[in-house]
Design a binder for these strands. Structure first.
Lengths: 205, 205
DNA sequence: TTTTTGATAGTTTTGTTAAAAAAGTCAGGA
DNA sequence: TCCTGACTTTTTTAACAAAACTATCAAAAA
């Protein structure tokens, strides 16, 4: 709690940074604790002094990324001229987040089934923030009188987020299921914009 | 082509039926050709007389299921009072199709990545039929003057189908990614109805 | 007392091989 | 043309050793 933690915190930060790079470029399973330690010119044992194990180190990096994302959302809450701006902002921010960290999430793709609970805590936090941003935007918009009053805005936003999550690449040609490939993300992004366009109109009088 | 194929076709049908039951109850990887042959009191070699190999037998069953589904869609094309009826019909039919054959599709879940191309042909056919049904319904509705003219109805329907595909179980509590579990299908179904409600309104004037 | 490390213990992944099980083939019978 | 038993080939499974990696710890350094 005292000032003495400063140096420790800085070191932790360094470790998170180096780990992020490794995880981002090589994925979870193909980076070893030795390599991270090597990048920082420290011993592997020291990593274990700062973090209890590999998976929790990964989580810590992920939490940091999530926090940055959350902050971005929170900083822009209630700053939108209309509902569409809010939705577009959310889609763009989310898109950038995914594109910039695409390889980092191979951990998700690999384990697919039973991921550690802490992951779902973080995902839940992010989801809650998105829900908050967008349902407030909806409430504001209702106040403006542009769209119909909604009993439960969160339910509607939750639905939209699910729907957005379902957008995949070109129907017939491409093979669905599985994770979207990186080269498709831009096409997906464009489709999402079209979807919210229709969706918003669906909320109007 | 001649009448002599009748008996062969009946036998093929029997094989498809028995295979369907096995695949449905035990999944692809846990049913053996011997078991199917046993169910029909025939030799395994005879199966290979009618079908080239196991995977193509599975495909044949799948194609049969798909054809039944397609027929259902085609029989009801252009029979809807309004657009919503058409969408609800599609969602309900699809829902029943999935619920009734849930275990059959474990083949998808297992392989997840690189599935045989023939699968995608069938998926493509089904998708095309859904696209056709719904975009015709949209065109009809435009004719009625209820909704705005759309340059490319198929694009819009494609988008909606993707969105529907993304609907999953309750946000925070439940763990996303991965296939939906059977016990969640009804909840998903309800959410889909809500989505098309908003979506259709989004297409109106 | 806090931070750091080399050495080492423990666990998971990888590679190998043999046995078992299942897929797939074929010569020949009805 | 339809069908089968016996056979071959391929795939899955189990067991186990080697290698790679995670995680720990006593002790040195700061």
């Amino acid at each position: 709690m005292a000032a003495g933690n400063d140096h420790q915190d800085i070191k932790r930060e360094k470790i998170l940074e180096a780990s992020h790079q490794r995880f981002l470029h090589y994925g979870y399973s193909k980076t070893t604790m030795n390599e991270i330690a090597g990048d920082l010119s420290m011993s592997k044992a020291l990593l274990y002094y700062y973090f209890p194990d590999k998976s929790q180190l990964y989580m810590a990096v992920m939490r940091k990324l999530a926090n940055d994302y959350l902050k971005l959302l929170e900083d822009n809450i209630d700053t939108f001229g209309d509902l569409k701006q809010a939705f577009v902002f959310q889609i763009n921010t989310h898109h950038d987040f995914i594109v910039n960290n695409y390889n980092f999430f191979d951990f998700f793709r690999l384990n697919e089934q039973n991921l550690p609970d802490m992951i779902w805590e973080i995902v839940g936090m992010v989801h809650a923030a998105e829900l908050n941003l967008l349902s407030r935007a909806i409430t504001t918009e209702i106040g403006r009188g542009t769209i119909k009053p909604i009993e439960n805005p969160e339910e509607v936003v939750d639905l939209l987020l699910d729907a957005l999550h379902g957008i995949r690449v070109g129907a017939i040609s491409q093979k669905k299921t599985s994770f979207p490939r990186k080269e498709h993300l831009d096409e997906i992004h464009a489709k999402k914009l079209l979807l919210i366009d229709i969706f918003i109109k669906g909320l109007m009088y």
